[in-house]
């Protein structure tokens, strides 16, 4: 093999890669929070909403789960502007990621909601709580606890999937790597470092989720 690895030239631009990684973390983190919010609302509508809304949420979930994130991204970034909705690349990336994650997480949260024993819901109704109160006060917490591992792995998939937003020039880690490899011509080194950074971010998020699970669902709830 005649190739000589040169990581030095890439490490000179390491600060830019860190900036890109930071944007990846912020995009993914924000998309996780907003996507979960979408999912909590949609899971309620899907299980207890009026019939037309149930069907609508069902269609949303199926449409998103059966098309690639990349195409959703293109529709948001390229197709919507002609309908008057204009966003810059980073905003479009976030919107597409939230829409995407929202659909997957809706399906997961719904499974959690359906795993809550009927008796608990009937208890809530017997106590005179409204449907929304039953959902918010009784069902939601155990439902989220039950599906937390599935949610966490979906979040990680989204984090890794976020590398495709480089295709619309959102300047996150992958996009920065693309720029760097085209200026330094050290493609392999750049992408190896970017890959390791993604791996580190994914491991960090997994740790964060484990801590979050312990903090929210385990600590002080053993009574």
């Amino acid at each position: 093999m005649t190739y000589v690895f040169q990581f030095g030239i890439v490490l000179d631009h390491f600060d830019r890669m860190l900036a890109g990684a930071w944007l990846t973390i912020r995009l993914a983190g924000l998309a996780m929070v907003l996507g979960l919010a979408v999912a909590v609302v949609c899971a309620y509508l899907r299980t207890a909403g009026p019939k037309p809304l149930r069907a609508l949420v069902g269609a949303y979930v199926e449409a998103i789960r059966n098309t690639p994130l990349l195409i959703q991204l293109y529709v948001v970034f390229f197709s919507l502007p002609s309908l008057g909705v204009r966003m810059d690349a980073n905003e479009a990336a976030l919107v597409a990621m939230v829409i995407n994650l929202g659909a997957y997480a809706t399906e997961i949260v719904r499974a959690g909601v359906q795993s809550v024993p009927r008796g608990q819901i009937e208890c809530g109704v017997a106590l005179g709580l409204t449907r929304l109160q039953v959902y918010r006060l009784i069902v939601l917490f155990p439902a989220l606890k039950a599906v937390f591992p599935a949610l966490a792995s979906q979040f990680i998939l989204l984090l890794l999937g976020s590398s495709v937003v480089s295709a619309i020039s959102a300047n996150e880690l992958t996009a920065i790597s693309n720029t760097l490899q085209s200026t330094t011509f050290r493609a392999f080194e750049v992408y190896i470092i970017a890959t390791i950074m993604y791996l580190a971010i994914a491991v960090a998020f997994r740790g964060l989720f484990a801590a979050l699970y312990w903090y929210v669902f385990v600590r002080g709830r053993g009574r």
């Binding site: 093999m1 190739y3 990680i156 890794l160 495709v164 992958t174 392999f188 992408y191 890959t195």
Partner: peptide
């Protein structure tokens, strides 16, 4: 762990550019 913990796009880039290095 390696393939589930890294983006598919990075795997594509690495195979595309990486295997080229080995001639």
């Amino acid at each position: 762990q390696l393939f589930q913990g890294t983006p598919l796009l990075m795997q594509l880039f690495l195979v595309y550019y990486g295997l080229g290095l080995f001639g």
